[in-house]
Design a protein around this nucleic acid. Structure first.
Length: 308
DNA sequence: CAAACGTGGGT
DNA sequence: TACCCAAGTTT
């Protein structure tokens, strides 16, 4: 029987026509041949390695994560090791991965794991979700990749694969919808181990073949079933895909300020921070924001440092 | 729910 | 040169 019958009252027409069974084997077989050998996927990689990678990979490409992930695991092999450090050291070691609040949240998550979970990354999806910086995607990813559980894992790659293969659109909606969750649930293999493999395989397919810019359909194991291809690969029609501005924004100023703090072993005088941006109002607002977020700690006399 | 939140490489 | 995009989460 189809998995959809058990978990979805009425699968969408597209899912019924496609049927998960037609897709599982080709995608999983393709994964077996083409999966990248990533550190957090190796047999000896523990849940902590997976969790660190998931935090780092939130909006940051794999190639830039690789060296930093290796450093972190060597330096802090268990959650308690990171928890024993100051949050500022986590922010410093985060380097230029971007979105440094992730470093703070990962440190906070490690602290919670050490204090409330006996130092072990929790297996339970709800407990994972309760950790700082862990949202719907990351909770499912850790439960699935680290512990082999059966969860829908909806990242941008999987959403794009399903948008094309199932819905026949060039791109998924801007935000994850209930319809996407239904589709993913209907396609999720019944067997736990197969489901976990499927999650990793669909993600890898999106990352390597069914890419955003120029998909290589000639290498796609399910091209023959793809609704988007069958419809003639129509261009994206909906509202413009949301872009991110950066130049001149507070984000850019925050980035410069934090770069100075990261580069300094000790506290930094106001003057060194003032040098990174000409406009005093925006500069002050950005610094206040960093303090507000806990990324920067003000000391007396206009001196600042990463949080101790 | 839209907007904020870094950084860098590809086209 | 601009703009797009990258294993999202939080408010």
């Amino acid at each position: 029987m189809s998995q959809s019958a058990r978990h979805s009252a009425s699968p969408s027409p597209a899912v019924s026509r496609l049927g998960g069974d037609a897709l599982h084997d080709p995608v999983i077989d393709w994964f077996g041949e083409h999966a990248r050998d990533l550190p957090w996927r190796r047999p000896d990689a523990g849940a902590w390695s997976v969790m660190v990678s998931e935090f780092m990979l939130q909006q940051t490409p794999v190639v830039r994560v690789l060296p930093v992930h290796q450093e972190w695991l060597a330096r802090w092999p268990r959650p308690a090791d990171l928890a024993a450090e100051s949050p500022g050291e986590a922010v410093r070691a985060w380097g230029r991965l971007g979105y440094p609040r992730r470093a703070l949240r990962l440190h906070a998550a490690a602290t919670a794991i050490a204090a409330q979970h006996g130092g072990e990354v929790p297996r339970d999806h709800a407990q994972l979700l309760a950790l700082p910086g862990v949202g719907e995607y990351t909770a499912a990813a850790v439960a699935s990749f680290a512990y082999g559980q059966r969860h829908i894992v909806l990242d941008t790659n999987v959403r794009r694969v399903f948008a094309r293969a199932v819905s026949g659109t060039a791109y998924p909606p801007n935000a994850t919808t209930a319809a996407e969750r239904r589709t993913a649930q209907a396609l999720l293999p019944a067997d736990e181990a197969v489901a976990a493999r499927w999650a990793a395989a669909t993600m890898e397919l999106g990352a390597l073949v069914c890419t955003a810019r120029s998909p290589e359909c000639g290498r796609c194991p399910i091209a023959a079933h793809c609704a988007w291809r069958l419809a003639g690969s129509p261009a994206h029609d909906g509202p413009p895909r949301r872009g991110q501005s950066y130049a001149g924004t507070d984000r850019q100023v925050r980035g410069r300020l934090l770069a100075v703090l990261r580069a300094s072993a000790g506290p930094v005088p106001q003057a060194a921070l003032d040098a990174v941006w000409h406009e005093p109002v925006q500069r002050a607002r950005a610094l206040d924001g960093l303090v507000e977020d806990g990324l920067v700690e003000p000391l007396a006399d206009g001196v600042y440092r990463l949080p101790a």
